[in-house]
């Protein structure tokens, strides 16, 4: 009897030691519709209740940012900004996003623009009645467009040029992913990912191997164009295939060229790998408009890398892109 007890004691002690040396791992995976897309969060760690709390907090954080920056919500900073041409006091986070967007508008020579709200509203691609905008309709909307159309005053108030409407579409999603990643990282020894409709931010790195991220093929649904092996950071794709309408056989997508007010025509899809999702988001939008020759130097200047498919179907990769495998 004593021997049995001793053995049992040994086994319990061994199990306790095992728990100390190799903690159990849990996986919390949840998705929610936010930012006009599906946001999926996947978080691994040792403490299940802490993971659950962190994931809930991250979704709340994304909802909070959506409330600040959505053009639809009438009390958001963006909606209020579009109701006045005077400088407006906005939330410090909205101000910092606008500051970053304005910097990129400058650096990209206007390929990225925070003031595309009226252009998007004119095309109304996401409504029930999309409209093929004509050059006459577009001309007055293009007047004020360009670097500086949306800016911050010296004292940090937000301001827009009269002929533009603010739209943070190409930047707010990335910012929200970055914020969610920051919230999740506070949960201690965890790893995982935030995926907002293909805008992906990583929480730490996988303990076993690199992240394997498939890039959606722009013309073959469900097929992967290439696979990226990444340690962490963020990866964002802008493609013409996700949200588009066909008007008289022509494909009109949601990525507009600020110089013409028409959907940009150089690329089919652009994927940017960067340290943060907001940076990757903005760079992907700018690169989509610029194309590889002008766009890659911009991407490199932010220590990011990119893979893109031009409209003729040719694949280009920026010189610093590593870890790509082709199927």
């Amino acid at each position: 009897m004593r021997r049995v007890l001793t053995l049992l004691g040994l086994l319990v002690a061994a199990l306790l030691l095992r728990q100390l040396l190799f903690p159990a791992s849990y996986d919390v995976r949840r998705s929610q519709i936010l930012l006009g897309t599906v946001v999926e969060i996947d978080l691994h760690g040792a403490d299940a209740s802490r993971l659950e709390a962190a994931v809930s907090e991250a979704f709340a954080e994304i909802a909070r940012i959506e409330a600040l920056m959505s053009p639809i919500n009438p009390s958001s900073d963006v909606a209020r900004l579009n109701m006045t041409t005077a400088p407006l006091a906005v939330h410090p986070e909205t101000a910092s996003v606008i500051a970053f967007g304005a910097e990129l508008a400058q650096k990209s020579g206007g390929a990225f623009d925070l003031g595309l709200g009226r252009i998007k509203a004119l095309w109304a691609l996401e409504s029930e009645t999309p409209h093929h905008a004509t050059a006459e309709e577009l001309a007055p909307l293009l007047r004020d467009l360009g670097p500086g159309d949306v800016s911050l005053t010296d004292i940090g108030m937000a301001q827009r040029a009269p002929a533009v409407a603010v739209d943070l579409g190409g930047i707010a999603k990335g910012y929200a992913v970055d914020r969610a990643v920051a919230v999740l990282s506070r949960a201690g020894e965890v790893w995982g990912s935030v995926n907002a409709g293909g805008d992906i931010g990583f929480v730490g790195s996988r303990p076993d191997r690199l992240w394997r991220i498939g890039i959606q093929h722009p013309r073959q649904a469900g097929e992967v164009l290439a696979t990226l092996s990444l340690e962490g950071g963020a990866v964002v794709t802008s493609g013409d295939y996700e949200r588009f309408v066909e008007i008289e056989g022509e494909r009109y997508h949601h990525l507009f060229d600020p110089s013409t007010g028409e959907p940009a025509r150089r690329c089919q899809t652009v994927t940017v790998v960067a340290d943060g999702a907001m940076l990757a988001d903005v760079l992907a939008t700018a690169l989509f408009v610029l194309g590889p020759e002008k766009g890659f130097p911009l991407v490199e200047s932010y220590h990011a890398s990119a893979l893109l498919v031009t409209v003729d179907g040719a694949v280009h990769t920026s010189p610093t892109l590593s870890g790509v495998t082709w199927p």
């Binding site: 053995l7 086994l11 061994a14 199990l15 030691l17 095992r18 040396l21």
Partner: peptide, 14 residues
């Protein structure tokens, strides 16, 4: 000793 393999070995043996 006390590696995952050890615990497998130990529990298997017991």
């Amino acid at each position: 000793l006390f590696s995952p393999g050890f615990f497998l070995s130990f529990s298997g043996g017991v």
